[in-house]
Design a protein around this nucleic acid. Sequence first.
DNA 1: CATGGTTCTGCCAATGATTCGCAAATTATA
DNA 2: TATAATTTGCGAATCATTGGCAGAACCATG
Lengths: 127, 127
Amino acid sequence: MCAEYATRPREQIAQILRSERRYLSAAEVFRALQRARARVSLSTVYRTLDRLRAKGEASSRIDEQGEATYVICTTSHHHHAICRVCGHVEEVACDPMERFTEALKAYHGFELDAHAMEFFGRCARCR
Amino acid sequence: MCAEYATRPREQIAQILRSERRYLSAAEVFRALQRARARVSLSTVYRTLDRLRAKGEASSRIDEQGEATYVICTTSHHHHAICRVCGHVEEVACDPMERFTEALKAYHGFELDAHAMEFFGRCARCR
DNA sequence: CATGGTTCTGCCAATGATTCGCAAATTATA
DNA sequence: TATAATTTGCGAATCATTGGCAGAACCATG
């Protein structure tokens, strides 16, 4: 029991996420599937996205409107810089943040949990 | 037209927010009102919280479950460091972030919009 | 302190994203 | 192909949030 089946819907959903390198909501993935003539139910989209996150293959965030969005990530230890213009997700290594982490601790006695941060701005292309 | 009435419900809601220095959802504010024997409807809580945000007297964020939460802020130009343990909100001035902003631009060509960041960790008291 | 126009509130129905239950379909394996 | 486990699709249920609207509260004025 508890095996793992490779199914067509799952592969189609992963495909969509891999091709778009930005945070997508379940509804957006669902629409993309329809455009691609893939018959997958919205329920399956929700379940599959959540499953990808649980396995660590995707990371999720709640956007400004409170909707859950997902993106496939490639490296393991990093944070996301999200472009406000195109939605592009830049994976930021932990290293360049250490200076800031130290400053925050010195100024405020605040110890940063470096695993839950995201940054917004404009990426190199959109500037 | 477009005047502004000082009402009991509004004052009671602001009172709650001022006494708790952490992000509260509409439902939490509503429960706090009930504990204080204040008869205010949930609709009014939603409207008032949104109104405070629009006036810049409170700032809001969407939590991990997608619920909108609100906190009163005192200074104008800052970001929030949120304690994972007690929920305490530390207001972080922009200054200590400039180093980090520069590094992000140098490494990734990413220009940070310094007005939409939040940091999580453990505050001085909870460490 | 009564009046009247404006602004707020409470109630309740509507919305929209997400989850749940369950029967039918799909997958892996023999 | 037969079987058992897993996954899917459908529709109903849930839950935070919003909208409409009639009545209540507010406050400047007479």
